[in-house]
Design a protein around this nucleic acid. Structure first.
Ligand SMILES: [Mn+2]
Ligand SMILES: [Mn+2]
Ligand SMILES: [Zn+2]
Ligand SMILES: [Zn+2]
Lengths: 138, 138
DNA sequence: ACGGTATCGAGAATTATTATTGACTTGATA
DNA sequence: TATCAAGTCAATAATAATTCTCGATACCGT
């Protein structure tokens, strides 16, 4: 996500109301380096905002995804993970402990993807998911 | 998938019975260059095998995935696509027509991924999904 | 204050996939 | 042939993440 100010500015200009519920979800996500599920977000925020509902969490996440402030990740079978980090990076998923690790490819790490077209199809985004055993599980 | 003979040989050696229902699913998938869903497989086979049930399609797909004869792909929100092509390749998904296009990286197409370890995590497989507009939709 | 609109939360609905169940098939054995 | 055990079938129920519905409420400009 962008900064708090930028994000709420974008929502305002798109015509969304900045309700306390939405702001709580946004504050939860800003600077969050994990990849929480809707259930985790709901569970954590419910403590502080007991009247928050699941629908509102989903609605807010879908709204944020629509304006590309978060990205949903299909890493597991039964649920989505949400990534507030919209910088270009990839993911590693451990098949033993299910942890999700951000991969920021550096020079020499040999992650390179085409941009523009491939076989005549126009690429707009690319997702890379590595699976294996994470450092701690090894 | 491997050849018909190799595949049924593997199933036999793993202790699975080669029932007509399973064989019909296997024959459907061998050489299939699309990425059918369980529902599509069921719908197509139902015409020829009216007593086939959905459970059997799912059970057979899960069995084939367990022995790595097919690969399930989480490309859309609500269902899985199954890929009988187990050679190393990637996918392009068109956001306009939802078609799934195989990407076999060639020399000079600049798709290269690390093997072995990345940041101390052991890579066992990698999935790449490009999204954008396909050639025909452009 | 008033009227129109957006959003809320609660709970129902949706739906792809998985689990359960009881009948049936198969093959080995006596 | 009779019996038995294991595997598999199809029908159906269950599961669970996400979305939808709806009446109530908050907000906004006038
Ligand atoms: Mn991430
Ligand atoms: Mn493919
Ligand atoms: Zn791990
Ligand atoms: Zn297309």
């Amino acid at each position: 996500m962008h900064s708090f100010e930028t994000t709420i500015g974008r929502l305002r200009s798109e015509g969304f109301k900045l309700t306390p519920q939405r702001l709580s979800v946004i504050r939860y996500l800003i600077g969050n380096k994990t990849h929480p599920t809707a259930a985790v977000i709901y569970g954590d925020l419910k403590k502080k905002y007991p009247s928050l509902s699941f629908s509102t969490v989903y609605n807010t996440l879908n709204m944020l995804e629509k304006i590309s402030e978060v990205q949903s990740l299909h890493l597991f079978d039964d649920f989505l993970n949400y990534d507030p980090d919209i910088s270009s990076h990839y993911h590693f998923v451990c098949r033993s402990c299910d942890s999700i690790i951000d991969i920021f490819p550096r020079e020499g790490e040999n992650v390179s993807l085409p941009e523009g077209d491939i076989s005549g199809n126009r690429i707009e985004s690319a997702q890379v998911v590595f699976k294996g055993m994470c450092k701690s599980c090894l």
